[in-house]
Nucleic acid binder design. Structure first.
Lengths: 198, 198
DNA sequence: TTAAATAATCTAACACTGTTAAGCAAAGGT
DNA sequence: ACCTTTGCTTAACAGTGTTAGATTATTTAA
C-alpha cells in the first residue's frame, strides 16, 4: 500500500520537472520559444501528459509566477533579517527586489509581463529618439549650470522615466488603484524630482 | 501615365489599411489575437499580400511603434508650446506622456513591451500578495504616526514600486545605461522617498 | 495464475499560427 | 494578337495549443 505514496512521489517529480524544463527552455531560448512539445521533449514524454499536471500552458506560467513570488518573499525576509533599522530594512528589501529581478530575469518577466523582444530597432530610427531627446534636453535646461554634468542629467532623466513608466505599466498589468491616487503619485513624483534638481 | 500615381496611391492606401486594421483588431481583442489572416480578412484580401507591404508580422509591429513615437512626439511638442516656464513645460511633457499611454494604450504596449494578459490570478493567491504586503507594512512602520493614513502609505508604496519596477523594465527591454548609473538612480530614489516620508 | 479493471502513455487529429511557392487571371505594352 | 508584368489567390509547410481515441502497462480480484 506504500506504493501509492511512491507513485505520488513520482507524480510530484514529473510536475516539478515540467516547471524546471520550462524555465530551462526560457533561459535558453526565451519565452516565445516555450512550447508544450518542447517541454515534453525535455521531460521525455509526449505533449498530452502535461495536461495531466496542468490545465493548460497558462497554468504553467501562473505556477511559475507563484513560485517567483515565493522566492522573492524569501529573499526579502532574508534582507529584513540582516538589518534592524526600519529604513535600512526597507532599502534592503527594495535592493533584494532589484537583485531578484535580474538574478531571476525570466521569472520577473512572467511575473510582471515584461516583454523583451519588443522594439528591436532600438537606436536606428530617429522617430523613436525624438521624444526622449526632448525630455532629456528640457531636463538639462532646468538643471542649474553648476550641476549640469551629463551624468547628472542622465540620472534625473532615468529617475523620471522610471517612475512614470513604472506607474503606467503597473496600472496596465494590474489595475488595483484609483485614478486619483495615480495622478497624485505622478504629480508628487514629478514635482519632487524637479525640486531635487535645482 | 498618371495611372502609375493612382496605383501608387492605392498601394499607399492598402499599406495604411493594414496598419489601421491591425490596431483595430488589437483594440477589439488584444495583442495575442492579432494574426495575419485576421488582418487580411479586415482589409478584404488574403494573407500573403500583406507580405507585399511588410516583410513579416514583426515589421508591422515595428511600424506601429514608430507611429506611436511620432504621435507621442507631437503631443509633447504641443504640451511644450502651451507653457513658457521650463519646469512647467517638463511637467506638461510627462503628463502628455502619461495621457498618451492610456489614450493609446495599445500603442504604448507595443512600444514598451507591456504585456497585459500576464498573471490573471491577481488577488486570489496569497503567495503573490505576501512580498507586496511586506513592503507596504514596512513603509507604514517608517511613516511617523501623525502622517500615517492609508492613503499616504499607498502613495509612498506606489511611488517606490513604480520607480523600481520602471527602472527594471526599462533595463530589461533596452539596456542603454550603465550598471553604476542604475544603482545610483535606484539608491537616490529609494533614499529620496524614504526621506520624504518622515 | 489468469482475468478484469484501471492507470499511464502515445498517436492522430483539429483548428489555429506565420510564411512561402506555385499558379491563375486580368491588365499593360508592343 | 501575343507576350510580359502585375495582382491576387490557393495550397502547402512547419509550427503552435489542445483534445479524443487507441494502446500499452500495471494493478487488483478471483
Amino acid at each position: 500500500m506504500a506504493s501509492k505514496e511512491r507513485i505520488q512521489r513520482l507524480k510530484d517529480d514529473t510536475r516539478a520537472n515540467i516547471l524546471e524544463a520550462s524555465i530551462d527552455i526560457v533561459k535558453e531560448e526565451g519565452w516565445q520559444a516555450l512550447s508544450m512539445r518542447k517541454i515534453a521533449d525535455k521531460i521525455e514524454y509526449t505533449a498530452p501528459i502535461i495536461y495531466e499536471y496542468f490545465a493548460n500552458k497558462e497554468a504553467i506560467l501562473n505556477e511559475l509566477t507563484r513560485l517567483g513570488y515565493v522566492k522573492l518573499g524569501r529573499l526579502m525576509e532574508l534582507a529584513v533579517s540582516e538589518h534592524s533599522d526600519p529604513a535600512e530594512q526597507l532599502e534592503a528589501m527594495w535592493l533584494a527586489y532589484w537583485n531578484f529581478a535580474f538574478a531571476e530575469k525570466e521569472l520577473y518577466q512572467v511575473m510582471y509581463g515584461v516583454e523583451v523582444n519588443c522594439c528591436a530597432m532600438q537606436n536606428m530610427c530617429p522617430d523613436i529618439q525624438l521624444p526622449m531627446n526632448m525630455l532629456w534636453d528640457k531636463i538639462e535646461e532646468i538643471i542649474p549650470p553648476e550641476k549640469r554634468t551629463e551624468e547628472y542629467v542622465d540620472t534625473k532623466y532615468y529617475t523620471f522615466w522610471s517612475v512614470v513608466h513604472g506607474l503606467i505599466s503597473i496600472n496596465m498589468t494590474r489595475k488595483l488603484t484609483s485614478d486619483e491616487l495615480n495622478k497624485q503619485v505622478l504629480k508628487d513624483a514629478i514635482s519632487g524630482i524637479i525640486n531635487s534638481m535645482r
